[in-house]
Design a protein around this nucleic acid. Structure first.
Length: 352
DNA sequence: AATGAATTCAACCGCTGCGCG
DNA sequence: TCGCGCAGCGGTTGAATTCAT
């Protein structure tokens, strides 16, 4: 670090791009691809640094960019993903494939953050802000819903981390051309556990490992190794996939994720999968999670809205989407708000 | 109509992670 | 194994635009 910025080179232009520069960059990339960004400016005849060119391309010139107002669905997706991923804009952007990370970041900072704050939700933690009005039964219900959002976010975040790690490793191992889909082979799965700990994961079992997810490039090749999900003895709240052997450990995580997937598939066969108009194909696979979050978020926002000005603003934008709520996820929310959620599971699982 | 405040968003800056020699 | 160079990411800036008075 401490390296001097590439744009410090004398003679390199900074600031807004001119139409002529855009044209040059566009023409060059269309003809040759971007190749090495560092080498591109000289090849394209631009007095810019490669970094600037890359930024201009990815944030503005790329032909597949969707510009303009964000739809309600996109807003929901951003809020959900932000709850799960935090300020990882590029990761969020992969789920809104036609939006750039910069645009999403800007939109969050200028619109969504403020709106959540207005609703009494801390945009950082996605929990009810400390100063949020609480008192009525609805307020209490809202607070619980918000708390559950955060709780779910922790669990899901841990799962996504594990999934992402496996995806990276899997990608390195397979090193195949550019497979973007997962090949699932039938395997012998263990009976679903009745552990109270894993029972907590039931809500996520409706979420399949998505076949098109940009973050899910796993390729599961079936094998007959036994699954051993380590449950910490004496502490049912600690779900830990443990092993002394990294290989077995990875295998366990893989199978754990696959178990969730298979059960999700079973759910789909039963027809109890609900999808709320997610734009991205991959999202449909994980709609259980997304829709659930959406519903819960809506529910929480609705509750707050009844006692705040935020409702008017939000309701004005909510169309018929809310109609297609998931009974599955409503059930989860019901479990939460009626305090059936065991309070003894305060920690997300450690997918180590 | 003028002006200052607020908002938006393209672009920059600095840091991190990864691949390669 | 280590160091370098590169691409990519997230935070920040500031010019342009819109809004309020």
């Amino acid at each position: 670090m401490g390296r001097s910025p590439c744009c410090d080179k004398v003679g390199l232009k900074k600031g807004p791009w001119t139409p002529e520069e855009d044209e040059k960059l566009l023409a060059h990339i269309e003809e040759h691809g971007h190749g090495s960004w560092r080498a591109l400016p000289s090849k394209a005849g631009l007095q810019r640094c490669g970094k600037s060119c890359r930024l201009r391309w990815t944030n503005y010139l790329r032909p597949d960019i969707k510009r303009g107002k964000f739809s309600l669905q996109e807003e929901q997706t951003i809020i959900q993903l932000h709850a799960l991923l935090g300020n990882r804009w590029s990761a969020i952007a992969t789920h809104l494939s036609r939006r750039t990370d910069n645009e999403i970041k800007n939109y969050w900072n200028t619109h969504l953050k403020k709106r959540l704050a207005k609703m009494g939700i801390d945009p950082v933690t996605h929990k009810a802000a400390s100063g949020a009005p609480v008192g009525t039964a609805d307020d209490v219900r809202s607070a619980k819903a918000a708390a559950s959002l955060s709780h779910m976010a922790q669990w899901e975040s841990a799962r996504l981390e594990a999934e992402g790690r496996l995806a990276r490793e899997s990608t390195m191992r397979t090193a195949a051309s550019t497979p973007t889909s997962i090949t699932l082979h039938p395997i012998n799965l263990p009976e679903p556990t009745t552990s109270p700990c894993l029972g907590m994961l039931q809500p996520w079992q409706g979420a399949k490992l998505d076949l098109e997810s940009p973050t899910s490039t796993l390729t599961f090749i079936g094998n007959n190794n036994s699954v051993s999900l380590g449950i910490s003895e004496g502490d049912p709240t600690t779900c830990k996939l443990r092993s002394d052997d990294p290989e077995r450990e990875e295998d366990s995580v893989r199978k754990f994720l696959r178990q969730q997937q298979m059960q999700g598939l079973e759910g789909a066969e039963r027809g109890d999968e609900h999808i709320i108009g997610c734009e991205e194909p991959w999202f449909q696979g994980t709609a259980g999670v997304g829709a659930g979050f959406t519903d819960m978020l809506h529910d929480a926002l609705d509750c707050w809205g009844e006692s705040s000005n935020g409702q008017a603003e939000l309701s004005g934008q909510v169309s018929g989407d809310g109609e297609s709520s998931s009974s599955y996820w409503s059930g989860i929310l019901g479990m939460v708000v009626t305090s059936e959620l065991p309070p003894s599971h305060p920690h997300p699982p450690a997918f180590l």
